[in-house]
Design a protein around this nucleic acid. Structure first.
Lengths: 137, 137
DNA sequence: TATTGTTATACTCTATAACTATA
DNA sequence: TATAGTTATAGAGTATAACAATA
């Protein structure tokens, strides 16, 4: 395959997986960013808005809109962090945990389907590449 | 690192590289989709709207807006395909070639910076993973 | 003064459905 | 009838800059 830019292939893979995920999770009525945020919160760790934004890959100002939606649906709570009342800690509610679990399951299923036929070690290399790209200056 | 979903890492890498690219190419005043489209057209091959949409990862209806902008800036032309006048062939203009070349150069530079320290074979494995994810059903 | 988050603003990105032209 | 693309619509995603509250 020519046009071999890894970055272009990255865009394609991202578009395809996001769309696939949204379809697999259509019953939840979540937008792409909602899915991304819930997927990152799924491990149960509470995060500040900034931390979540970094994990998701967007600015705090962008997160605000997403969090407004998730809060409105009762999937997360926002609370001032004890000790530093500037920071806002985001945490899943009980319903949020359920939704996030479904998101993670859909992601895991998708990965399994897509990568079943690839050699075992390949995935680790891919992670290294993705991490390096995510941190580029 | 926990939260090890490849899909989540994919999103992070995509956000980070897009933003980095947009900054590196700020002088050209291009939107993310413009950059993506030009990067795909950079090899000089003319493509129909549908083909380009597939390469970029979006629907034809989305491409229309991007192409309107690129055409308005004189970077591409649209013409009916001889033999099937329903199809629209997109091609870079002379200015478009210049812009696309800069886009590809910025992408290549970014990849070099990010991946310089990784073992040689890693990249091929990553491509295989990205391709598999892009084609998942 | 610096930091965290939200608001305000202005575009871009996207999909779906309806439409036009061509096959 | 089927296909390629555009238009219309509506909403989601994004950044920047200005702002408020807290440190």
């Amino acid at each position: 395959m020519k046009n071999g830019s890894v970055i272009l292939e990255l865009q394609r893979a991202t578009h395809a997986t996001l769309q696939r995920l949204a379809a697999d999770l259509a019953g939840l009525g979540l937008a792409a960013s909602d899915i991304n945020a819930l997927g990152n919160l799924a491990d149960g760790t509470a995060r500040t808005v900034s931390e979540l934004g970094t994990a998701v890959g967007t600015k705090p100002a962008t997160m605000t809109g997403v969090l407004d939606r998730l809060e409105g649906r009762g999937l997360i709570t926002r609370a001032a962090r004890p000790g530093d009342r500037r920071a806002v800690v985001v945490q899943l509610t009980r319903d949020g945990v359920k939704a996030a679990t479904q998101v993670r399951r859909a992601m895991d299923d998708l990965e399994r389907r897509a990568l079943a036929d690839l050699p075992a070690g390949t995935l680790d290399g891919a992670r290294a590449v993705l991490r390096a790209l995510a941190e580029v200056e």
